[in-house]
Simulated assay, not measured.
Amino acid sequence: MTPLRIAYIVAHRVRLFLRRAFQIKTRGVKAVVLRGREVLLIRHSYFATDRFMLPGGGVGRKETVLAAGIREAFEETGCRLDNVYVHGDFISNGEGFPDHITVIVGETRDDPMPDAGELLEARFFPLDALPDALTDASRRRVIEIRDGLPPSGEW
Rank of each mutant, 00 (worst) to 15 (best):
M1I: 10
M1V: 10
T2Q: 13
P3W: 14
P3G: 09
R5T: 11
R5E: 08
A7E: 09
I9V: 09
H12M: 10
R13S: 13
V14L: 15
R15Q: 15
L16N: 09
L16E: 03
L16C: 05
F17G: 03
F17L: 13
L18V: 12
L18P: 00
R20I: 01
F22N: 11
F22E: 09
I24L: 12
I24H: 12
I24C: 11
K25G: 06
R27P: 00
G28C: 02
K30E: 09
K30R: 14
V32G: 00
V32W: 01
V33L: 07
V33P: 04
L34P: 02
L34G: 02
R37E: 07
R37M: 14
R37D: 06
R37N: 12
L41R: 06
L41W: 04
I42C: 03
R43G: 00
S45G: 05
Y46A: 11
Y46E: 15
F47H: 13
F47V: 14
D50K: 10
D50E: 14
D50Y: 15
R51W: 09
R51S: 15
R51G: 06
L54P: 02
P55I: 13
G56S: 07
G56R: 11
G56C: 07
V59P: 02
G60Y: 09
G60D: 03
R61D: 13
K62H: 13
K62A: 14
K62G: 14
K62F: 10
V65T: 07
V65Y: 03
L66F: 12
A67H: 07
I70P: 01
R71F: 03
R71S: 04
E72C: 03
E72M: 09
F74R: 11
F74M: 12
L81E: 01
N83G: 06
Y85P: 00
Y85F: 08
V86L: 04
H87I: 01
H87P: 00
G88N: 06
D89E: 15
F90R: 08
I91T: 11
I91N: 10
S92V: 05
N93M: 09
N93T: 13
F97K: 10
P98Q: 07
H100R: 15
H100V: 13
H100G: 06
T102L: 08
T102H: 11
V105D: 00
G106E: 01
E107Q: 12
T108R: 08
R109F: 13
R109Y: 14
R109A: 15
D110A: 08
D110L: 06
D111I: 11
M113Q: 15
P114A: 09
P114Q: 05
P114R: 06
D115C: 09
D115A: 11
D115G: 08
E118T: 08
L119D: 02
L119G: 05
E121P: 02
R123T: 03
L127P: 02
D128F: 04
D132Y: 15
D132N: 14
A133Y: 05
L134S: 06
L134P: 00
L134Q: 08
T135Y: 04
D136R: 11
A137E: 12
R139C: 02
R140V: 06
R140N: 07
R141N: 06
E144V: 05
I145N: 03
I145Q: 04
D147N: 08
G148C: 05
G148A: 08
G148W: 07
L149G: 05
P150I: 10
P150T: 11
P150S: 11
P151R: 12
E154R: 06
E154W: 07
